Amino acid sequence: TTQFTVHSPEQAEQWKEYAKQKGLEVHVQKKNGTWHVTIH
């Protein structure tokens, strides 16, 4: 599991796309103005 924080919805979307291409599961949670992205 990879977990990191991004600071814009655009970055979060890019990671979603990346994960989809790799066939991975991605979870994005918005918290205090940042987005926590978890890739399984």
Score class of each variant (00 low, 15 high):
residue 17 E to R: 11
residue 11 Q to P: 02
residue 16 K to D: 03
residue 24 L to Y: 11
residue 2 T to G: 06
residue 36 H to C: 13
residue 29 Q to S: 11
residue 28 V to A: 02
residue 2 T to Q: 12
residue 11 Q to D: 10
residue 27 H to T: 14
residue 19 A to L: 06
residue 30 K to L: 14
residue 14 Q to D: 05
residue 17 E to Y: 09
residue 12 A to F: 05
residue 15 W to R: 00
residue 32 N to P: 03
residue 21 Q to L: 12
residue 36 H to N: 06
residue 5 T to W: 12
residue 4 F to L: 07
residue 32 N to F: 06
residue 19 A to T: 02
residue 10 E to I: 07
residue 35 W to G: 00
residue 21 Q to N: 11
residue 40 H to W: 15
residue 12 A to Q: 02
residue 19 A to N: 01
residue 27 H to D: 10
residue 25 E to L: 12
residue 10 E to G: 06
residue 17 E to A: 11
residue 24 L to E: 02
residue 35 W to V: 02
residue 14 Q to F: 15
residue 2 T to Y: 15
residue 11 Q to N: 04
residue 18 Y to M: 04
residue 32 N to K: 06
residue 15 W to M: 04
residue 15 W to Y: 04
residue 39 I to M: 06
residue 13 E to A: 10
residue 5 T to G: 03
residue 36 H to A: 07
residue 28 V to D: 00
residue 23 G to M: 04
residue 29 Q to N: 08
residue 38 T to N: 03
residue 18 Y to L: 05
residue 4 F to G: 02
residue 21 Q to M: 12
residue 25 E to Y: 13
residue 18 Y to V: 03
residue 31 K to W: 10
residue 39 I to L: 10
residue 40 H to F: 15
residue 15 W to F: 05
residue 32 N to H: 07
residue 1 T to W: 15
residue 37 V to A: 01
residue 18 Y to A: 03
residue 37 V to P: 00
residue 3 Q to Y: 14
residue 39 I to W: 03
residue 28 V to P: 00
residue 2 T to A: 10
residue 23 G to T: 03
residue 13 E to S: 06
residue 3 Q to E: 12
residue 25 E to W: 12
residue 9 P to H: 15
residue 19 A to I: 03
residue 21 Q to A: 12
residue 13 E to G: 04
residue 31 K to L: 14
residue 5 T to D: 07
residue 22 K to V: 08
residue 7 H to E: 12
residue 31 K to E: 10
residue 11 Q to H: 08
residue 20 K to D: 04
residue 21 Q to V: 09
residue 7 H to A: 12
residue 30 K to C: 13
residue 29 Q to T: 13
residue 15 W to H: 02
residue 14 Q to I: 11
residue 31 K to V: 15
residue 4 F to Y: 07
residue 9 P to C: 14
residue 16 K to N: 04
residue 19 A to K: 01
residue 3 Q to W: 13
residue 3 Q to N: 08
residue 12 A to V: 15
residue 31 K to I: 15
residue 26 V to L: 06
residue 3 Q to S: 14
residue 12 A to C: 06
residue 36 H to F: 14
residue 11 Q to E: 15
residue 7 H to L: 10
residue 20 K to Y: 09
